[in-house]
Simulated scan of single mutants.
Amino acid sequence: MGITGLNHITLAVSDLARSVAFYTDVLGAVQRTASARSAYLELGPIWLCLEATDALTPRADDTHIAFSCAPAEFARLTEHISAHAPLWKENRSEGASLYFLDPDGHKLELHLGDLASRLAHYRDHPEKGVQVLP
């Protein structure tokens, strides 16, 4: 048997309390554990671990984590997040997206859509040069 899903995501953070506040207050995460060096948060089905570090290395590429929300919540969340986080990229993909940074510069995205909608988009737009495989 192969991989069955995403287990958890760990992000290194420079100020644990500040990051916990961002993820709980701005993104609505529920804090599940607390220690001097880490915190476990729950964001819908996602288990997110924030781990304090003294050696944070920001990435210069487009590597990021994309979160989903209900379509009816997208506008409200976009407005709320935009008021509390800097944006790092304009949306150029299928579906509505907001690209924002957490306090340590981790690149995040709020995205409407799923893999099925992305594949349908590429099927409908062969000029984009993406081959959808069976």
Score class of each variant (00 low, 15 high):
132 V>S: 05
72 A>E: 14
34 A>C: 08
133 L>M: 14
62 D>C: 13
31 Q>R: 15
32 R>G: 02
2 G>P: 02
113 G>S: 05
115 L>M: 14
104 D>P: 02
33 T>E: 10
100 F>E: 00
85 A>I: 05
104 D>R: 03
114 D>R: 07
126 P>S: 06
52 A>M: 09
21 A>T: 13
91 N>R: 06
5 G>V: 08
43 L>N: 00
32 R>Y: 05
97 S>F: 06
124 D>H: 10
115 L>Q: 14
96 A>H: 05
85 A>G: 01
67 F>A: 01
75 A>N: 11
62 D>T: 15
124 D>N: 13
83 A>C: 09
33 T>V: 09
100 F>H: 00
82 S>Q: 08
23 Y>E: 03
10 T>N: 11
37 R>K: 14
13 V>D: 00
17 A>Q: 12
19 S>N: 13
118 R>D: 08
101 L>Q: 07
12 A>R: 05
122 Y>L: 03
5 G>M: 10
108 L>M: 15
18 R>M: 08
33 T>N: 07
75 A>V: 11
51 E>R: 10
4 T>Q: 14
28 G>V: 04
52 A>V: 05
64 H>N: 13
93 S>E: 13
29 A>Q: 05
86 P>E: 00
80 H>I: 03
54 D>W: 02
33 T>H: 09
108 L>C: 11
120 A>F: 04
